[in-house]
Measured scan of single mutants.
Amino acid sequence: GTEIELESKNGQREHYTATSEDEARKIIEKAVRRGIKRIELRGASEQLIRDMQEIAKQIGLQYRTDGSL
């Protein structure tokens, strides 16, 4: 699965493990709508990382991946 670590603007951290790319995408989209400061992805697919970079650029988000592409 993909591990997703979120940090909201007030510094609250949340951790999710998505079993599918679809689920990961839903978690990320929800977080973005809620207003999130930072997202870290571990074990994400190349496609998901590309999507994440696109989203991050659009809304000026900090993100990090573990680089295991």
Rank of each mutant, 00 (worst) to 15 (best):
G1N: 13
G1L: 15
T2K: 01
I4E: 00
I4Q: 01
E5W: 14
E5P: 00
E5N: 10
E5A: 10
E5R: 12
E7A: 04
E7M: 08
E7C: 11
K9W: 11
N10K: 05
G11H: 03
G11I: 01
G11M: 02
G11L: 02
Q12A: 08
E14F: 14
E14Q: 08
E14G: 02
E14H: 10
E14W: 12
H15R: 09
H15N: 10
Y16F: 07
T17A: 07
T17Y: 14
T17W: 15
A18L: 08
A18R: 02
A18M: 05
T19S: 11
S20M: 02
S20Q: 03
S20R: 03
S20F: 03
E21M: 06
E21S: 06
D22H: 11
D22A: 14
E23H: 05
R25L: 10
R25F: 06
R25W: 10
R25D: 00
R25Q: 01
K26D: 13
K26W: 09
K26Q: 13
K26I: 10
I27E: 00
I27L: 04
I27T: 01
I28S: 00
I28P: 00
I28N: 00
E29G: 06
E29W: 14
K30G: 12
A31D: 00
A31F: 09
V32D: 00
V32T: 03
V32G: 01
R33V: 09
R34E: 11
R34T: 09
R34H: 11
R34L: 08
R34G: 11
G35Q: 04
G35W: 04
G35M: 03
I36Y: 10
I36H: 01
R38P: 00
R38Q: 05
R38T: 06
I39N: 00
E40W: 15
E40I: 14
L41Y: 02
R42I: 08
R42S: 06
G43E: 03
G43D: 06
G43M: 04
G43P: 09
A44W: 02
S45Q: 02
S45L: 03
Q47N: 11
Q47P: 03
Q47I: 06
Q47A: 12
L48Q: 01
I49P: 00
I49F: 06
R50K: 14
R50D: 04
R50L: 11
D51V: 15
D51I: 13
M52Y: 04
M52H: 00
M52L: 15
Q53Y: 13
E54P: 02
I55N: 02
A56W: 05
A56F: 14
A56E: 03
K57W: 10
Q58N: 08
Q58E: 12
Q58L: 10
I59H: 15
I59C: 15
G60S: 05
G60E: 12
G60C: 15
L61F: 12
L61E: 05
L61W: 09
Q62V: 15
Q62H: 13
Y63W: 15
R64Y: 15
T65N: 14
T65S: 13
D66M: 02
D66L: 04
G67I: 07
G67N: 08
G67E: 12
G67A: 04
G67V: 10
G67M: 06
G67L: 09
G67T: 08
S68R: 03
L69K: 04
